[in-house]
Write a protein that binds this DNA or RNA. Sequence first.
DNA 1: GCCATTTTATACTAATTAGTCAAAAATAAT
DNA 2: ATTATTTTTGACTAATTAGTATAAAATGGC
Lengths: 194, 194
Amino acid sequence: MAGRYRSFDEEAVLKQATDVFWTKGYESATTEDLLAAMDLNKGSLYNAFGNKKQLFKTVVNYYTAAIFKNLRTDIDMSDQPVEVIRSLFRKACDPKDPSAHLKGCFLGNAVAELANIDGELEQQAIDKLVTLKNIFKEGLDKARSMGQLPADTDTELTARYLLNIWNGINVTRRMYPYRKDLEPLLKMSLNMLP
Amino acid sequence: MAGRYRSFDEEAVLKQATDVFWTKGYESATTEDLLAAMDLNKGSLYNAFGNKKQLFKTVVNYYTAAIFKNLRTDIDMSDQPVEVIRSLFRKACDPKDPSAHLKGCFLGNAVAELANIDGELEQQAIDKLVTLKNIFKEGLDKARSMGQLPADTDTELTARYLLNIWNGINVTRRMYPYRKDLEPLLKMSLNMLP
DNA sequence: GCCATTTTATACTAATTAGTCAAAAATAAT
DNA sequence: ATTATTTTTGACTAATTAGTATAAAATGGC
């Protein structure tokens, strides 16, 4: 097949684009912001990714695919699946880079911003958050089947409870971006888990 | 004092502006959107409210002042202050107008959108959410002093827990905009309250 | 070597945006 | 009535925006 080779690494530029959309939001991220971060010119960006909306969709898929795959693997491998879930929350409350508190959750931000702006993009973000909830449920089901949760635990409801705590933490951590504040809150919020 | 009278009702136009900022967000709300909803022309808007940023500040203050005043009055008047708090959450899960689910919480939306866009406006929204948390605490303190909560209840931590549930619900309700989904979630989330 | 195809580079465009300005209208004080 | 002051009206502006177009560069197939 003829044609010039792409001079950029698709994974690398998508990672840069993720960061721009995450910190600025969909509408406030300008094409110039994206081009600068991705180190591309307009022709290349539009040729490779279509337009801003398609790029956003691609970014959301790219970003979530890796995270969800890892989470599911961790739960599958672990003999304490609840601990995998706890660890996700702990990382949100005590991130390596404290500026992560200001960014919140990429998906939660998208749902909040896009509800009345672009229903299709909002729905995509909702679908991904539902997937996160489903992963929580898979972990809880596994824990229950291993006797680590009461047999009568409603794992769907508990998974939604965890999702709601997740959605909350990603706003609340911007108000209290300190481990000393978030840890007690998290402890209280997860106290129904073993 | 000389000068032409204002032809508009300040409360009424601020209410309209609140709705535009709430549904569209700060940046996505254009001056044209605001002018149309407020039924003003540009000169009047800029003369009366300065600019878009000042208008947003005014709107946030106007919107929160009434709500917080009413909440505090209700708590002061009630002999079951926890019930006032529960009622606030119930209204969010089962609003008169179901389209309210798509709007979420005005303050939470602002915090999420503005963190990396305008620190001053973000801080204003954070301050108002802290006020909401403080009102929760006032209600919990009153309940505890009336023996409706265990004497050793950490009301500050519990108030933060409630704030986090609030922040979460206002994202989660966009995913599950139905009472049948939100009510069980709320029941589980508030089960530590009497 | 030449051609078809793809990517890169950058100038350009049409639309939108927040904000300004100057003139007209309305009002109170004198 | 005149004047000073404030509000209203709508045209105007400068900047920014997402997206397009066109040409050059790079590649494989023949």
